[in-house]
Design a protein around this nucleic acid. Structure first.
Lengths: 161, 161
DNA sequence: GTCTCAATGGGCCAAAAACCCACGAAAAAA
DNA sequence: TTTTTTCGTGGGTTTTTGGCCCATTGAGAC
C-alpha cells in the first residue's frame, strides 16, 4: 500500500550535469526506493517531471488499466481500438522506467528534457510530494507555489479540523 | 498524547553561529523532545519559524492524510494519489524534519534561513508557545508582542472564565 | 576495417555537514 | 564568598556527498 510508506518530504536545490544527470538527495532517495530498486519517471506538466518507485506506480497503472478495460467491455470494437491506441500512446510517451546509477544518480531521458525546460548545467528544484518526488524548473516551481500557497492554510485547516 | 505533555513556556535569547547552528535552552529541549528525538521545523511567517516534536507533528499529518483517503475512497486510485501529491508538495515547502545534534543543537536548513531573516552571528529569540517552540527574529518578535499585548488580558479572561 | 564521435559509467576532489571536544561563563550550592 | 556543576558557544576533525572530470565502450560513418 503506497500511502502507508514513509512520506517523501523536503525541498532541495540540485544542479543538472552537462549530460542531464542528477543526484537525488539521500533524504528522498532511501524512502523513494523502499525495497525495490526500479524507478519510473513521468511527465507532469511544463516545467515538472515526477519520479515514482515502481512499487507505487504499478498499482496505479493496474487500476487505470482495469477502468479502461471495463469501459471497453461495453463499447464497440472500433471504439475499443481507438481508445487502446490513445492509451498506448500515453503509456509510451508520458512515463518510462529508468535505471538508477550509483550514488543515487539518474539520467533524464531524451523525451523528457524539453518538458522540464532546464538546460544542461542548470538548476533543478527537487521536491518531495508525499507519494513521489518531483523535479521542477525553478521558475515553474516559484509560479506553482505562488498560485497554490494562498489557499494552502485553508486546505490544511479543512483537512485537520 | 501530545497535549498531556508538559507545556513549553519561556522566552530566551540565543545567538546563531556562523554555521546557522542554534542551541535550544534545556528548559525547552527536554519537554519538546519527549520520548522521540526527531524534530520538525516549519515556516510560520516572515521572521518566525516553529519547532515541533515529530511525535506531536506526525498525528496531525496522519489525520490530514486519513481525511484525504476517506474522502477519496469512492474515486480512483489515480485521483487519490494526485491529491496526496498536491498536498505533499505544499507540505514540503512549509516544513521539514531535521536532526538534532548533541547538546540540543540544531542547524537551520537552507530554505528556512531567508524567512527567519537572521544573518549568521545574529540573535534569535526562542519562545515557548505551549505546544511548540518558536524561533523569532528579534525585531519581528517585538512587533508581534506590540500587536498581541493589548488584547492579552482579554484573551486570558476568555479562556479562564 | 578503421577512425571518430558520443554516451555511459566510474572515480576523484573539494565543500559542506555531522560529530566531538574543550573552554568559559553563569548559576547553583555550600 | 567560594567552590562546583551545568550549560552555552566556539572550534577542530572526520565523514559524507554533490559536482566535475576522465576513461572505457559501443555505434556509426567513411
Amino acid at each position: 500500500m503506497p500511502g502507508s510508506a514513509e512520506l517523501l518530504l523536503g525541498e532541495f536545490l540540485r544542479t543538472l550535469d552537462d549530460r542531464f544527470r542528477l543526484t537525488l538527495p539521500t533524504e528522498l532517495l532511501d524512502p523513494l526506493l523502499g525495497d525495490g530498486s526500479r524507478l519510473v519517471i513521468a511527465k507532469e506538466r511544463t516545467g515538472c517531471l515526477s519520479l515514482w518507485s515502481a512499487a507505487t506506480w504499478q498499482p496505479r497503472m493496474d487500476a487505470a488499466l482495469d477502468v479502461i478495460r471495463s469501459k471497453l467491455e461495453a463499447g464497440l470494437l472500433d471504439q475499443r481500438l481507438g481508445q487502446m491506441q490513445d492509451l498506448g500512446r500515453l503509456l509510451s510517451t508520458r512515463q518510462r522506467t529508468i535505471p538508477l546509477a550509483g550514488r543515487g544518480r539518474l539520467v533524464i531521458p531524451d523525451g523528457f528534457r524539453s518538458l522540464l525546460g532546464v538546460e544542461p548545467g542548470g538548476e533543478v528544484v527537487v521536491v518531495g510530494a508525499a507519494v513521489c518526488v518531483e523535479l521542477w524548473q525553478p521558475a515553474a516551481w516559484d509560479a506553482c507555489i505562488a498560485v497554490e500557497m494562498p489557499g494552502f492554510r485553508q486546505r490544511i485547516d479543512e483537512l485537520t479540523s
